[in-house]
């Protein structure tokens, strides 16, 4: 059944804390004036959106400040995990040529894996070629400014996002037997990938992060800044016990990039 939405605000019913139904709303479209990946910003600027009375967040910000120097924001368009991961990792690759060599080989091999899984060749090639073109430029051609410009040019940036999504989907489908245990409801891995991984704008959960870090061999640390108790942010390394170079900040529904 259809529901009309010409507006950017979607209404929905939710259960409030006292158990009553109330109307909530969510803004669907994100102001496109916000850059896809921002410049580095200080914690002072980053924290200015929180009220001084918001003690939980103020304390957790203080905690982050002890361990990190600054943040890059990403646009909250549902692709932020992939955009934050991609940018942060590529930024590292600009400095680390040995890792770049390893990654180039891994990224090249993902194409055949996807074709074997039955993805249509000409759509995969389109995204694979565009992805590899950017990876190729990390060797010597790109400066940090050019990398930032590429990630902020939606026409180029989204090709990278799609390919990262396809890598996650390919990995989950290849390892379906194991990951099927983590899918809620009665969906198959393929259905899950078709609905929650491949479409643009679908948000990422632990399973997406685990799949991407495993598929590419790139460990990630996520610092969690939520309303949970305590004055500190908890973090989790994917996989456990790794030494991640990519560090992301998670606030409910959104990922940004952290710098030590």
């Amino acid at each position: 059944m259809p529901k009309d939405v010409d507006s950017d605000i979607l209404c929905f019913l939710r259960k409030s804390e006292n158990g009553l139904l109330e109307i909530g709303y969510t803004v669907r479209k994100v102001a496109s004036s916000q850059p896809l990946v921002s410049e580095k910003i200080s914690f002072e600027v980053f924290g200015s959106e929180y009220s001084d009375e918001d003690l939980i967040y103020i304390h957790k910000l203080e905690d982050l400040k002890k361990r990190y120097t600054c943040v890059r924001r990403t646009r909250g368009d549902g692709n932020c995990f992939y955009r934050a991961f991609g940018f942060s990792y590529f930024e590292r690759l600009l400095q680390d040529k040995k890792e770049l060599q390893r990654f180039t080989d891994v990224a090249k091999s993902t194409r055949d894996d996807l074709i074997k899984l039955g993805f249509p060749e000409f759509t995969i090639d389109d995204f694979h070629e565009n992805f590899m073109e950017v990876v190729g430029k990390l060797e010597s051609e790109f400066t940090l400014t050019e990398l930032t410009d590429t990630f902020n040019d939606q026409g180029l940036s989204d090709y990278l996002i799609v390919y990262l999504r396809l890598i996650v989907s390919g990995f989950l489908q290849k390892e379906a037997e194991f990951y099927t245990n983590f899918i809620e409801g009665d969906r198959s891995i393929k259905e899950f990938c078709n609905q929650e991984v491949e479409p643009m704008g679908k948000e990422s959960d632990h399973i997406h992060i685990i799949a991407l870090t495993n598929a590419l061999g790139v460990p990630v640390r996520v610092e969690y800044m939520d309303r949970g108790e305590g004055d500190q942010c908890n973090h989790h390394d994917f996989p456990d016990g790794s030494k991640p170079g990519v560090i992301l900040l998670y606030r409910p529904g959104h990922y940004d990039i952290l710098y030590t």
Binding site: P120, T123, I124, N194, E198, P199
Partner: peptide, 18 residues
């Protein structure tokens, strides 16, 4: 047509053919 791949479940890896 009410078909999920035409809106919510559309993916750039799909095509006219799919």
């Amino acid at each position: 047509i009410c078909l999920s791949i035409l809106t919510d479940d559309w993916s750039p890896a799909l095509s006219v053919q799919s």
